[in-house]
């Protein structure tokens, strides 16, 4: 049994001028210990998918149209309050993009971490909690952890704040870490350190990782398996070396061709013509067909199925 199994998951947002079909038939199975990167551009639904694992999409406007998300067989979408609280933080820990907005400026780091710990382990004494906080901050390689507990968020650099948030995500001893663009708000030199930290934690604690990013370079630094999303669908799902070595889906190829590469000064990146579809009225068949250089008549009518293992692709024009 897979650790996490998403089955034909469809999510829509009810809004002005109708329903927006944000996720359309997502099928994804993640095994324990895997590190999976979800990559795609604005509006592809990657963050919505990540938040779905913790049922964090506010409803309304979000509405599950169909499908299930199972953790060890149990449907997250059907969980009650108590089970959901255990899931959040206790089973799946989450790290977000902007470390500034997820820390409360009026409380010290220690106060905020104690708060998180109280929720997960109510039985601990004050001293035990403090010791655990220091242990967590040391796990994310923050120096002088004890002194850090009495500092306020604004006294920390962006990279340190993100480390604190990772420590908080680990406070409930989760088995899965979901990181949504954890380095996008950080400088490049810090980005590399945070990614190295995440990769190291995943290996040391035996975590299962789901990393969301728009950047194939970031994904390539921390994930063994890469899932490419476009307009609410998974278009390709493959081990990293296969995805970079022999990308199959025309969108994946377009994405790779659009990335500037420092190692190839002469290579001019080429953009993908057209723009992402309006998900109020998504294209019939394959959602990529209006922009696809390989589009055939069948692409306009029938949605391609994600098939092939270990290199899966959802495309009529290319075979896995």
């Amino acid at each position: 049994m897979s650790l996490i199994r998403i089955e034909d998951y469809r999510l829509a947002f009810d809004g002005f001028e109708g329903r927006v079909h944000v996720l359309d038939g997502i099928d994804l199975a993640i095994e324990a210990g895997e590190s999976v990167g979800i990559v795609g551009e604005t509006g592809c639904g990657k963050s919505v998918l990540a938040r779905s694992l913790l049922r964090l999409n506010p409803s309304p406007p979000a509405r599950v149209v169909s499908g299930a998300i199972r953790y060890e067989g149990e449907d997250i979408l059907a969980m009650g309050g108590g089970a959901l609280r255990r899931l959040r933080g206790g089973i799946i820990g989450m790290v977000f993009q902007d470390p500034v907005t997820y820390l409360n400026p009026v409380f010290t780091i220690g106060q905020q971490m104690q708060e998180v710990l109280r929720a997960h382990e109510p039985g601990l004494s004050r001293a035990q909690r403090r010791a655990r906080c220091i242990e967590l901050l040391e796990a994310v390689r923050l120096p002088e952890a004890a002194a850090l507990l009495d500092r306020y968020p604004h006294e920390l650099s962006g990279g340190m704040r993100q480390r604190v948030l990772i420590a908080e995500a680990l406070a409930g001893n989760p088995r899965v870490l979901v990181a949504d663009e954890p380095t996008t708000a950080l400088d490049v030199t810090i980005q590399r350190q945070i990614l190295a930290l995440i990769a190291d934690l995943v290996a040391r604690l035996g975590l299962t990782l789901m990393l969301i990013s728009h950047d194939l370079g970031v994904i390539g630094a921390a994930c063994r398996r890469i899932v490419v999303m476009y307009a609410g669908t998974i278009v390709e799902d493959a081990p990293a070396e296969l995805l970079f070595g022999s990308p199959l889906h025309p969108y994946t190829r377009g994405l790779l061709a659009a990335m500037p590469d420092l190692r190839q000064p002469g290579h001019m990146p080429s953009g993908i013509p057209g723009s992402i579809p309006n998900l109020r009225d998504p294209p019939q068949g394959c959602r990529y067909h209006p922009r696809c250089p390989l589009a055939m008549p069948i692409c306009c009518t029938t949605k391609p199925v994600l098939r092939g293992a270990p290199h899966a692709v959802a495309c009529h024009a290319v075979a896995p």
Partner: peptide
């Protein structure tokens, strides 16, 4: 050294 080009990056 911090640049992460598209592809597998060993950290």
């Amino acid at each position: 050294a911090s640049v992460l080009p598209p592809g597998i990056n060993r950290l």
